[in-house]
Nucleic acid binder design. Sequence first.
DNA 1: TTCGATTTGTTCGTATGTATT
DNA 2: TAATACATACGAACAAATCGA
Lengths: 252, 252
Amino acid sequence: MDTPARITDNLAAAPLYREVQWKITRALAAGEWKPGEAIPSESQLARQFKVSIGTIRRAIDELVAGRILVRQQGRGTFVATHTEDRTLFYFFHVVGKDGSREFPVSELLGFRKERADADDETQFGLVRGSRVARVRNLLKLAGKPVVLDDITVPTERFSRLDESTFRNREGTIYGLYQARYGVNVVRISERLSAAHPPADIAAILGLRIDQPALQIRRVAYTYNDTPVEYRRSWINTSDHEYLSDLWKSAAR
Amino acid sequence: MDTPARITDNLAAAPLYREVQWKITRALAAGEWKPGEAIPSESQLARQFKVSIGTIRRAIDELVAGRILVRQQGRGTFVATHTEDRTLFYFFHVVGKDGSREFPVSELLGFRKERADADDETQFGLVRGSRVARVRNLLKLAGKPVVLDDITVPTERFSRLDESTFRNREGTIYGLYQARYGVNVVRISERLSAAHPPADIAAILGLRIDQPALQIRRVAYTYNDTPVEYRRSWINTSDHEYLSDLWKSAAR
DNA sequence: TTCGATTTGTTCGTATGTATT
DNA sequence: TAATACATACGAACAAATCGA
């Protein structure tokens, strides 16, 4: 086992539709088709890749399920964007205790560039000393502060990222990444715990020092499971909750 | 618009594969095919429903994606069970802060039957005064108490549910529901918040009274989104976290 | 408004490959 | 080995939505 022949076997063993899927994903990662744009039609892709249209559809199916692409009958297939309302709540899980879903209002509280420290290394696996940008962002719901995000992004992917870009953006942060830097967040992984936040954060969220908050460590990924953003959030759960719904879709 | 004809249209407009999917789900809910058993082969179903085998596969696809059915090449398609290790972590989201996944050890702390109270009504929509069973269950990881579950189930679905059945079960609670009462949990919805647990619970979890815990309200559903269990959990997040991963599957 | 071209959605059928028993 | 079952791939035909002439 573990002979070169075997490795070749494994690669060759992948079904055709997965090869096609891989090619499409690679084109997306390369920015060949940009968010909001239509990718070539199924029949065009079929000709281009020299496979049947059914194989193309099979390849696209999973990308649609993963919310990377969006199909529209009669129009085409489009690269998903973060500007649509319905995709927003795929990454934003805070709801009112009465079940209400509300659009958060964002407020930039801080921005600076520095070097990755030991904490970044242990928590997120960043290389110590590499350049990062730190963003502190507050989300308000119904006028009240509910979520405080401390965001860390490696600057190599986000060239010339600065405070005014962040402050003057329209739409969500992931929408900014997407429109301005071509970085498309397609998946997140979050780890939640209960803790007492630092005093400054408690003050921002309007929490007494004896009140706990929900702490979240998030890693956001783009295509091919490449991490692009690290985030530590504190949520005031006096009037709100974190919704983990597995899962809304499909008929069951 | 909005004529009766239009309504009929909408019902008739459902594609064939969705009708088939609905029939399969109905058969599952009726207990026609039981967890662990194989459902009829695709060719048999195709003959039975008088549709092509491709339509059958399309119908089953979504049920497999929803973890209601499991396909095995060369063997058949089976009704998912809660006895398999890999399905366990689909409903159990507590992991070590070092990322370790561990099998919890269960300990029954309390069992009683009573009437649904006002809290059940507001939190879960149960009819006040209906019969319910209350179960208090502790989960230990690495020998230490980490999760305390207060479980409420309406007894109508679980006839002759008693303490010894619960205590002497093998495997998970959902495995018990499935094997003994024919109730197959296929989906859960959870709402998380940070709070100070009641003193008795803090004591069980080994928390000082000034230490917060993660509170979870869970509703578990069987086929057709029918709720079957209500649960309030407290998690000691000193050494563990709640993992929300959207999501592992698919190539991306 | 109508019509036709384009694109995705549904359904069918066939052939072949691969895993299991 | 043979039979069975799911997996992959191809193609055809028609339906439904969209868009512009």
